[in-house]
Simulated assay, not measured.
Amino acid sequence: MSTQTIINRHAPERVRRTPAGEQGFSWVRLLAVMLVVILALGPLYWTFITSIKNGTELTASPPTLFPHSFDLSNYVQVFSSSFFLPTLRNSAIIASITTILALIFGILCAYALARLDFLGKSTVLSTVLSVNMFPFIAMIGPLFVLFTGPIYLYNTYVALIIPDLVLTLPLTVWFLTAFFRDLPSDLEESARVDGATRLQVLWLVIVPLTAPGVFAAAILSFIAVWNDFLFGLNLTSNERAQPVTVGITRFNSEHVVAYGQLAAAAIIVTIPLVILVLICQRRIVSGLTAGAVKG
């Protein structure tokens, strides 16, 4: 029996079916990607075209899928309002401070959980993760009473930074623990032999080596705080500390819903996140990928 006969007997179906199977799989994958893109970008597209429609087209029935006008008056009204830019500044300050604090405390806690041996370590890690399962709306009542009574923090940055830390710290700790745990301990031992303290090892050796993970955790924390609405709605009352996610709702009045201005404000609020993700996408992807492989 010839070699060609053996090959044809054992592999003809696979050889003949592979191109057709791959082609079918490619079409399915392409359709899946297109569906995901439409679902992801559809709301953003609708918000954008709503923001550039004039008043007549905004109330047209049925609504137009492709706008006939390009009116920037909604954006002008948003920027000329007395509260939008202050609330935008508040969101930037609150998100930045919360992210920095979450990284500082998260790195220290994650390093302790990854490197130190102490009683109940697994329980602590499980408890940290379970905090994210807690309904944060249940915190609003006690926090409101606390910040308007014994501790007068209502309508301040601190009143939002504290609960936002509760929101971001569990994610940061859980995310970074996997990175720190998978680093070889020989690096730390070498630094300790050279005279470095444990904190110096952490900040000068461990953190730089896990920079992709730290950066990804920082971006995810910043986005979570930037998008917060629940705490901002209940723990602030005006543009003194109110985040922009709550501030844009003030475009509405008792009898009018300002669809155009709301859409324009939503687009403006989304732009900083889009720019941040586009600039840092390589670090985010590398951090998430490394965490997935290591964890």
Rank of each mutant, 00 (worst) to 15 (best):
L199E: 01
Y111D: 13
A138D: 05
F66G: 01
S91T: 15
S91K: 07
P135R: 00
I284L: 15
I223D: 07
D186Y: 01
L88H: 10
N227M: 08
V28W: 09
I7V: 14
V37N: 02
H68W: 07
T47I: 14
V201G: 02
I279E: 00
S126T: 13
D164W: 01
E13A: 15
V78Q: 05
L278V: 12
I93Q: 04
G291R: 13
V76Y: 07
V15S: 11
N74F: 03
I104G: 01
T210I: 11
K53H: 04
L233H: 10
K53Y: 00
R250S: 12
L113F: 04
A217C: 08
D164R: 03
V244C: 03
T50A: 14
L72S: 11
A292T: 07
N227R: 05
G232A: 03
Q261C: 05
F251I: 02
T270L: 09
I93L: 11
P163S: 08
N90T: 12
A20Q: 14
G247H: 04
K53I: 08
S81Y: 05
A196M: 15
S126Y: 10
L167K: 10
R17I: 02
T127D: 02
L58T: 10
H10N: 14
A178W: 06
G295V: 08
L171I: 12
A216Y: 03
P163N: 00
L273I: 14
V145D: 07
T156E: 05
V166R: 04
P12K: 14
L202P: 15
D71I: 03
S190A: 15
E57F: 01
P12N: 14
F70K: 03
T87C: 15
I137F: 11
R240L: 12
P272N: 00
L88C: 07
A114I: 05
F83H: 13
F70A: 09
S26F: 07
G149N: 14
S80F: 01
P63W: 06
T148R: 15
L262K: 03
I268A: 13
L72C: 02
W174M: 04
L176M: 01
Q200H: 08
N8L: 10
I52P: 02
S96V: 14
H255V: 15
F70D: 05
C280L: 15
F118S: 02
F180C: 08
S82Q: 13
H10D: 09
A110R: 08
I7P: 01
F66M: 13
Y154V: 03
P212E: 07
L169K: 00
A264I: 04
I140G: 06
P12S: 13
S130A: 15
Q242C: 09
G106L: 08
L125D: 10
P243G: 06
L176S: 06
T210H: 04
P63G: 09
I94C: 10
G120W: 01
I284V: 15
A218C: 00
Y75F: 12
I284N: 04
L204I: 10
A258D: 12
A290S: 15
Y152D: 14
S2N: 15
P208Y: 04
A211K: 14
T168R: 03
V285N: 08
M133E: 00
P212K: 04
L153H: 07
L88S: 13
L119K: 10
L153P: 12
V166C: 10
L153E: 06
